[in-house]
Amino acid sequence: MADIAEIQTGLAEIVEEVAGIDAAEVTPEKSFVDDLDIDSLSMVEIAVQAEDRFGVKIPDDQLAQLKNVSDAVDYIAKNQ
């Protein structure tokens, strides 16, 4: 089980890999769409990689609710 800090770090690495945004920019309060300019196609890829890395399921209806980085980190922490 990854703790919150590990999930935050791991998710930032995934965002950098998929979308090319410096992991240091991927901070908890940032919005994926409005702040990080990540489109819906990249979000699908990020979700698949996060599922594999953290052993969690992120259904499409849940994915749509994950507006900020912290939303995703919290969801993963609760559901891993």
């Binding site: 819906s40 196609l41 990249s42 699908v44 890829e45 698949v48 599922e51």
Partner: peptide, 10 residues
């Protein structure tokens, strides 16, 4: 399926 890229079509 889940590993197929969402960018496949573009």
């Amino acid at each position: 399926l889940r590993k197929v890229s969402p960018l496949t079509i573009p």
